[in-house]
Simulated scan of single mutants.
Amino acid sequence: MKKIMVTGALGQIGSELVAKLRAEYGSNNVLATDIRVSDNREEGPFERLDVTDADNMHALAKDFGADTMMHMAALLSATAEKNPLFAWNLNMGGLMNALEVSRELDLQFFTPSSIGAFGPSTPKQGTPQDTLQRPTTMYGVNKVAGELLCDYYFHKFGLDTRGVRFPGLISYVAHPGGGTTDYAVDIYYKALQEGKYTSYIAEGTYMDMMYMPDALQAIVDLMEADPSKLVHRNAFNVTAMSFEPSQIAAAIRKQIPTFEIDYDVDPERQAIADSWPDAIDATAAVEEWGFKVDYDLDKMTADMLEKLQLKLKA
Rank of each mutant, 00 (worst) to 15 (best):
K190A: 13
E260Q: 15
L222W: 06
G204W: 03
E287D: 14
K20A: 10
N56F: 08
K156W: 15
M209A: 11
M209K: 06
P267F: 13
I35L: 13
P267I: 06
V6S: 02
Q12P: 00
N91A: 03
M138T: 12
Q217T: 09
Y139Q: 02
F291Q: 04
I187A: 02
P213D: 08
L17P: 02
D278Q: 12
Y211P: 01
G44W: 10
V37H: 03
E203N: 13
L192C: 08
R41W: 07
T137R: 07
N29R: 06
G8H: 10
I280V: 15
K292I: 00
T122I: 07
T111V: 00
A61W: 12
T33C: 08
L49N: 09
L169Q: 15
S121Y: 12
M223S: 06
E288T: 01
A215T: 05
R134T: 14
M241N: 02
P128R: 04
T205A: 06
S242V: 04
Y188Q: 03
A74H: 13
L222H: 06
W289R: 04
D34I: 09
D182W: 15
H232V: 05
A87Q: 03
E81K: 10
H232Q: 09
G94W: 11
V6H: 09
V185F: 12
N29V: 12
R269F: 12
T198G: 00
M57S: 04
Y188I: 05
H232M: 06
A225N: 02
Y183G: 00
S242Q: 09
I252H: 04
T137S: 12
K20Q: 14
M96E: 15
A19M: 12
P257V: 05
M210H: 03
L312Q: 10
M57N: 03
E100V: 06
P120T: 01
A145Q: 04
L148M: 13
K292L: 04
T136P: 01
E147L: 09
P45Q: 14
R103L: 11
M138K: 09
E43I: 08
